[in-house]
Nucleic acid binder design. Sequence first.
DNA 1: AATGCTATCAGTAACCATTATCAATACAAT
DNA 2: ATTGTATTGATAATGGTTACTGATAGCATT
Lengths: 135, 135
Amino acid sequence: MKKTQNRRMTLQRKTILEVLRQTNIHPSADEIYMMVRERLPRISLGTVYRNLEVLSESGFIQKLELGGTIKRFDWNPKKHYHIRCLRCGRVDDAPIAPFNRLENELYGVTVYTIIGHRLEFEGLCPSCTKNNHPS
Amino acid sequence: MKKTQNRRMTLQRKTILEVLRQTNIHPSADEIYMMVRERLPRISLGTVYRNLEVLSESGFIQKLELGGTIKRFDWNPKKHYHIRCLRCGRVDDAPIAPFNRLENELYGVTVYTIIGHRLEFEGLCPSCTKNNHPS
DNA sequence: AATGCTATCAGTAACCATTATCAATACAAT
DNA sequence: ATTGTATTGATAATGGTTACTGATAGCATT
């Protein structure tokens, strides 16, 4: 029995959404917190985490769990792939269409019920490619 | 200037490697800690983390950064894909050959220097499939 | 055997992203 | 206005991981 979830588009929630939609750097919760504070200086970090969770559950945005330790957020809720710089952590969209039939490859050869897949490319961003003198 | 790394195959290191090779559950550092303690009761959790890092850097094992928050370890250092249960976190090898040319898809259409990719399937394991009555 | 060098150890503290808690507040429906 | 619930800001707690520290163990050279 799921309890009713009456969600209100509060100023905090709306501001977080607007701020996220203005960037394509796939920011972390803390980066979003710093950006939002320029418009709502008294907002709490907990509020940012809470609303990022709500917004991604509601399908407005997408929570990314890529390599590394931190979670990032994407204003675009549609399925697409990403590419991450192994040196500085920068994340961009991967300019490649998603494989919609990839799950079929596992049909009949796994005991799992397949739901989806996550594909992430790893590499070096332009800046880190340039400065890639071995340490 | 990289400092010399004279690595010794200590008892702790060897035991961790042996214990990991006896399982296919892709255990976390803490799970490995508990398993190793049955043979080395006085080993420290820090030692486990340190040696898992050394062993993966040396190519003996593989560190997995899948979805979710914790890191897991795989006795098989060769590139292969995994499938993770969204409900209980169980991880198995995905019975599908890796796409070796996938990076070529991005050649010329990204500003990144592509190094590799990570593909992970998500689904429900048999046990969680059976018990999947909606909450 | 004694010495010196260095890797590794166990134990513990620190770190950091994230979650949980809670009293106070804002909003919506009556 | 009043009641009920969602949300907030502030802060504490959590949990996985990493860093620090002084002690110990292995190895090469005397």
